[in-house]
Simulated assay, not measured.
Amino acid sequence: MMEPDYITMVDPKPLLRSEMKHRRASLAAANPLAGEQLAGHAEAYFAAWPLQGPVIAGYWPIQSEINPFPLMQMFEDRGLLLALPALLPVDGGYRMIFRRFRIGDQLLDGPFDIRQPRDDAAPVDPDLLLLPLLAFDTKGIRLGYGGGYYDRALADLRSRRAVAAWGVAFSGQQLAETPSEAHDQPLDGIFTETGVIGTNP
């Protein structure tokens, strides 16, 4: 009797994450002012498309992530409220929530070398999330680090009301197609140093 052929399904994400980390590091080294350029494009975009809601959640950049603080400063200057993610220990892992933040606030060292607001900072539900990423495509699929914290937090928020999610990235992080799974939360668009990219689910 012949043995049946078995096809081993290999997850493409780990290798792609490694490749995209190297690519992003090269992009960051080549353009240290990308965050300021990105903020300029976003400001022009929102001048024509007003925000629906006052609370914007940014992030603290690590590794070679594009700096979102010029963009966050633009939002704060327009009178909008800022927040940052905070990881809370739960059941041997972490749960992502969002806490109120102002540019210049003192921050704490959180898990994974991420700076996050103090424990006494008020928790808030953002209306718009700015998400770091390793890769994206025009369908709004985002490749993150694999922890799933943003996807779970965004799914929870979206189960209760409309919440926008925008990637913040170098234009060179765009792929023709990004591997996806059923739990991946789609992006509404991506801010880059060369312009704003809309998504077509």
Rank of each mutant, 00 (worst) to 15 (best):
L130R: 02
P123S: 02
G35V: 09
M1V: 09
F112C: 00
S159C: 06
P89N: 04
H22K: 14
K21I: 15
K13V: 05
G140K: 04
F75P: 06
A165G: 13
I62G: 07
Q173F: 13
D151W: 07
D184R: 07
W60V: 06
Q174C: 12
A83C: 09
F136M: 02
A164D: 11
R17Y: 05
P50N: 04
I197G: 02
M1F: 05
Q63P: 00
P68I: 08
A86E: 12
D77V: 07
L27Y: 00
T178K: 00
F69H: 15
W60G: 01
D77L: 15
T194G: 05
A25K: 14
R102P: 01
V10K: 07
L33Q: 14
D91E: 12
S64N: 06
E177V: 10
M9Y: 10
I141G: 04
Q116K: 00
I97W: 01
L88D: 13
T192D: 05
G148S: 02
L87Q: 05
A34R: 06
R23T: 13
G148T: 01
P123Q: 04
L108V: 15
F170G: 03
V10D: 05
Y149F: 14
A122D: 11
R99N: 06
V55G: 02
A83N: 08
Y59T: 10
L84I: 01
L107K: 07
I103G: 00
Q116M: 11
T138N: 08
Y94N: 05
Y59M: 08
L71V: 13
D120Q: 08
A121M: 08
R24E: 05
L157N: 01
A182L: 11
V90M: 09
K139W: 07
L129V: 12
L71F: 12
T138Q: 11
P61Q: 07
R161T: 10
A164E: 11
R142T: 03
K13E: 01
I114S: 03
P54Y: 03
A28Q: 14
I103A: 10
L108R: 14
V196L: 09
L81R: 15
R160N: 02
E181C: 06
T8P: 00
V196W: 05
H183R: 12
Q185N: 03
V55F: 05
R23G: 00
I190M: 01
Y45G: 04
P132F: 04
E181S: 09
E76H: 10
D77H: 15
R23F: 00
I141L: 07
L38W: 04
P4K: 06
G148K: 01
L38S: 04
T199I: 12
D11S: 10
A169K: 03
E3S: 11
T199L: 02
T194C: 07
R23L: 12
D137R: 03
P70F: 11
A121N: 05
G104W: 05
L130I: 09
A42C: 10
